[in-house]
Amino acid sequence: MSERNWNTDIIGFILPALIFITWYLVTLEGKVPGYLIPSPVNLVRVAVDFATGYANLTPYGGTLPAHALASVQRVALGFGLAAAFGLPLGFLTGRINLAKSSLDPTVHLIRIIPGIGWLPIAMVWFGVGETTTLFLVALAAFFPIYVNAAQGASSVSPLLIRAGRMLGASRLTLFTTVIIPAAMPSTVAGLRLGLGISWAYLVLGELTGVTYGLGAVMMDARMLGHVEMILVPMIFIGLLGRVSDMLLVGSFKRLDMFREESKQ
């Protein structure tokens, strides 16, 4: 058993290792100019410098905390807004036919428009930068959260609902003590999708021009010709996205019990 896991772990590392080696060899030979693809060694040095400012290799030395904080705040606020609207509306449309028939068609109509399509009009309404970014993040993250919360709430087993009612739950307590917990697996899946999309639209929004933020650094570095500083923020965005996903999943850890149950 453990041997097999060990093998699959190794297999998973082969492709990244090959890519890394090829990348290193390509830059070593000098076949590709450094301003297109920097060497991995250089990239790591710039990344460490971005985080700590130990050698001031670029104008961005030591500024990672400020930029990362700005980005994280935007994601938190935009994602929070999306969840604040998406969860209650999703639960309601999942359970109440009137809410579904009055809300669902409109939401799905708007959902067809790709999120990027909102960029120009958002810039007209909110100007470049801060508010536009928030708007895009919140709008894009709303849909998966809403759809999955509704899906989860509408597919709660009718037997669980009967059990709750016969044990004395009123309509409202039924919602909070049975429907929402039972809808959790689907809801968390929606939140994870929404969080992932939040990071994507964060970068889009930040590229339009904000002072602080990882996306802003990328755009700025492009103009100043620091190719490393285009790639390094990409890596940090990936890391932050992964960490935020792990935090989200971790905070719903009790759910594992639930998953075991539904497997039966």
Binding site: S157, L159, L160, R162, A163, G164, R165, M166, L167, G168, A169, T173, T177, V178, P181, A182, M184, R254, L255, M257, F258, E261, S262
Partner: peptide, 30 residues
């Protein structure tokens, strides 16, 4: 439905997100 006429179903229909004790306490809490 009312707790005056409690039901035991053909399948257990426990709340999977609550442990045994909390399942049994559910109605009393309400």
């Amino acid at each position: 439905p009312s707790p005056e006429r409690a039901v035991v179903f053909q399948s257990p229909v426990l709340f999977p997100w609550l442990d045994v004790k909390d399942n049994i306490l559910y109605g009393l809490k309400l």
